[in-house]
């Protein structure tokens, strides 16, 4: 290194050392606690605004209610943990888990589609007047979790920002939809498979294309 470069580098190192303050290292378990808190507050807000569906909580709903919300919860958890890990980058990190969880959860709308085609009248006969309300409410229910995950990533150093954006969208809408789903008494395959899963597809698109500018550093 020539003397001029050496002087500049030493000056920068001196300045950075002078600026040094103790920091608390990022720990995934702190992130999990933050996301869990956001989910709990979301559920409380759902209870306050829509009211939780007691029949569902006491085991009287159809199996689709538990299957659908369970798949969304697992997908949301897998994607959220993937996001939390991305805040601490390293060569060798793999983000395969959330991809498999997304493939698993895709069974939900696919099963709804197969069910729809097998019904008399097919798509033409399908009408769900409550679908749009559930879709909107589930998307709104994802805001707190999305905020928590974006805050976490901005504190960290994500280096795969497109994937991080996608996973924030998937995690927040899957957890938001599962939280809102606790209030929805429509427990049929078609309603849950379409209208409670659709927010995740919307979240994935918004996360992949709108969030990366917020996550770059």
């Amino acid at each position: 290194m020539n003397p001029e470069r050496n002087r500049r580098a030493n000056s920068l190192i001196e300045r950075l050392s002078d600026d040094l303050e103790p920091v608390r290292a990022i720990r995934t378990r702190d992130g999990i606690a933050l996301v869990a808190l956001a989910v709990v507050v979301t559920i409380l807000l759902v209870e306050f605004t829509e009211g939780l569906w007691l029949a569902g909580l006491t085991g009287s709903a159809s199996p689709f209610f538990y299957l659908g919300n369970g798949l969304l919860l697992v997908l949301g958890a897998a994607a959220a943990i993937g996001v939390l890990a991305m805040a601490s980058p390293r060569v060798g990190n793999r983000h395969e888990g959330p991809k498999w969880a997304m493939a698993m959860a895709a069974v939900l709308p696919l099963a709804a589609l197969v069910t729809l085609f097998s019904q008399p009248g097919g798509i033409a006969a399908y009408h769900d007047p409550y679908g749009m309300h559930c879709l909107t409410a589930a998307v709104l229910s994802s805001v707190l979790v999305a905020g928590a995950l974006v805050t976490w990533l901005r504190r960290g150093a994500p280096v795969s920002v497109n994937t991080a954006g996608l996973l924030v969208g998937v995690a927040s809408t899957a957890l938001g939809s599962a939280a809102y789903g606790l209030s929805c008494p429509l427990d049929g395959m078609l309603h849950i498979g379409f209208w409670h899963a659709a927010p995740v597809a919307i979240g994935a698109l918004v996360g992949r294309f709108a969030l990366p500018p917020l996550l770059r550093w």
């Binding site: 290292a25 805040a87 601490s88 980058p89 390293r90 504190r155 960290g156 150093a157 280096v159």
Partner: peptide, 24 residues
Amino acid sequence: LLAVHNKRASWDPVRPFLPWLAAI
């Protein structure tokens, strides 16, 4: 070097250091 300074909290002490530095 600036990025290492600004993002030093993102290194988890239970993980190796060089793969973190290489990612940055």
